[in-house]
Nucleic acid binder design. Structure first.
Lengths: 246, 246
DNA sequence: CGAGCGGTTGAGGCATGTCAAGAGTTGTGG
DNA sequence: CCACAACTCTTGACATGCCTCAACCGCTCG
């Protein structure tokens, strides 16, 4: 691991409050690794040997069933993924592949499990992290069940605008193909939906998004604190898609 | 609270391992309450003042958005709900209403938050509970995104059969109307789907389910350990629907 | 340059929701 | 005890949302 990696990790809420000695112990058994783009790092069903920390790049979490596949989340630096599987010492529920060249730190799950029994501050941090992640997936499930795909697209575009600082022009953080899967629709359907949304106050040209009539778009998206907000404590990543699941 | 309530609660994984003194402290500030059927106990958006423990009856967790509503889970005795909201001291993401006459114990969220900083065994139990719940919602999200409604119905019927002990005949645990909402479809569509599934090895007459050709039904449902299984540690309820979310 | 990939567009079909009506059941009050 | 209301469930007819298949464009990269 590079010396400049440590402060970045230490800055995460998950590791911020634990004792320095325990942090160092945990890190001493961890190691960093670089992956090329498009590489599968984790396969669903595999035993959860490591907590993953993304330091650079981007990771897609996706799920498969019966020859179908869908994107569940995109994880950006600096944040962690598959914490819940490591805690429970259970198989990963999702696979993970790199979207770009990505630098990852791998923390042995067994050390993690041993550590939170010894360091109260660490266990409190894990509790907060899990609770926030839990609520995040509930929001996502609500969105899937309560909104149509058109409403999900509108909400997404609006939320992204907020994350970009409230500007009415920004660029999409991921390929449309991936975005479609994340939102639970086909690329063709997303493409058509974006076209139709031009009548509702937003124009998308390539990766460029321009909100032309925020009031109109808002009326369609009906943003809701209980669906679209993110738990602030956890959202320290500037992550463009709702944070790491699992 | 009745004296016979305590052992039931103590038996939950969440409270099993904490010290007796701490358990008693937590319970001394808690109180039980009985609710008639069809009563709203929790409204989404309200501040999370209490962890809820279901001792008798049944509770539906549901979510609303823009005049639409959907069932997220049904909680049966003995188990808890809205743990994550209490932990984070954040608004409930879901509402809760009783399906039957229901007996609930209310644990003040502030006491809960204070306690897990003091009792390591309790914090470990919370970590396990949250991680299991987290994974449970991820499974649910995978099911929604990867399966068609027909496949979800088939999986549900098959999973229920397993929970009933592998028998090929059992009764539905909830009204079809609620089941439809839980599975993300309309009652009409569920009704039609059940009819069509008679060609795939299962017959539903009223609340009675009879699996007539398990192999055929299994081929359609393609049960998957990474979607349909439940974390055993948490599934001590005999719950008929996947356990409490949130 | 050519292959491969992402994105778009069109045509067509299936799945699902909506609206409406009626049968059966449950619960309530006269 | 019956009558009625309210509710669930079912079925039909219809509309529509979404997917599938196919073709094509434009870009990137070997």
């Amino acid at each position: 691991m590079r010396p400049e990696d440590l402060p970045e990790i230490r800055h995460l809420h998950l590791f911020r409050d634990m004792s320095q000695a325990n942090f160092e112990t945990l890190m001493s058994s961890s190691y960093a690794q670089n992956f090329p783009p498009g590489l599968d790092m984790v396969r669903q069903g595999d035993p959860s040997d490591f907590l993953h920390i993304v330091l650079e790049g981007a990771v897609e979490l996706y799920a498969k069933w019966a020859d179908r596949e869908c994107t569940m989340a995109v994880v950006r630096p600096v944040s962690t993924f598959i914490l819940a599987a490591c805690i429970r010492d259970a198989p990963y529920l999702m696979s993970a592949r790199t979207l770009e060249r990505t630098r990852i730190v791998l923390v042995p799950a067994s050390d993690l499990r041993a550590m939170f029994r010894r360091d109260t501050e660490f266990s409190v941090a894990i509790i907060n992290e899990l609770a926030a992640g839990y609520r995040s997936v509930v929001r996502s499930a609500k969105s899937l069940k309560l909104r149509t795909s058109r409403e999900r697209v509108a909400s997404f575009l609006l939320t992204q605008s907020m994350l970009a600082g409230g500007t009415s022009s920004y660029t999409l953080p991921v390929e449309k193909r991936l975005l479609a899967s994340y939102l639970g629709m086909t690329p063709e359907n997303l493409s058509r939906t974006l076209r139709l949304l031009e009548a509702d106050g937003v124009k998308v040209d390539g990766a460029r998004v321009i909100i032309t009539d925020r009031a109109k778009l808002t009326a369609l998206a009906k943003p809701d604190k209980l669906i679209d907000a993110s738990e602030t404590a956890i959202d320290q990543t500037g992550s463009s898609l709702p944070r790491a699941l699992e």
